[in-house]
């Protein structure tokens, strides 16, 4: 019974099933932009929402690694999934971000990334291939995440 469900959900997700950087999102000025603008860099894509506690905890760490590895070609892209943009702006006022913030209110990109929990993070190497993904944010695993990024940056 389980297999049928899997098949159905895959088909429903449409062509762009696998996570990739070829997706359309909105930037702070509400213009449609593509994630491919970060191609060539090591990209840490993070899906978050204003109501999610662990997401709030991950921002300071993302700030740190963005400042630390910016000039080695790291791009942290946090994609907000709130349907009400006001909530996202309120969150950003309280929890500053010095990395790129994008918006995907319809959640279609999140659906094609098939998130298992919130937050969810995906690591792309310089060739734009997905190499790693994590669910949730745990302070004691942050060093592990950082090491994975450092290895990607060295490639």
């Amino acid at each position: 019974m389980k297999k049928i469900w899997l098949l159905l959900s895959l088909m429903a997700a449409g062509v762009q099933a696998a996570p990739s950087l070829d997706h359309q999102v909105f930037n702070a000025q509400n213009q449609a932009v593509s994630l491919s603008e970060f191609k060539g860099k090591v990209v840490y894509v993070d899906f978050w929402a204003s109501w999610c506690g662990p997401c709030r905890k991950s921002f300071p760490w993302m700030n740190e690694i963005q400042t630390k590895y910016q000039d080695q070609g790291l791009a942290v892209v946090a994609i907000n999934l709130d349907t009400d943009n006001e909530l996202a702006q309120e969150f950003l006022k309280q929890v500053p971000a010095n990395f790129s913030v994008r918006f995907n209110p319809e959640g279609d990109v999140a659906r094609s990334f098939d998130l298992l929990g919130m937050p969810s993070s995906f690591m792309f190497n310089r060739q734009g291939q997905l190499v790693q993904h994590h669910v949730g944010f745990y302070a004691d695993k942050a060093a592990e995440y950082e090491q994975e990024l450092v290895n990607l940056l060295k490639e």
Partner: peptide, 13 residues
Amino acid sequence: GCSNLGVQPWEKG
């Protein structure tokens, strides 16, 4: 067992 009930993780606001 039924997995059709429920919402996506980002729809749990």
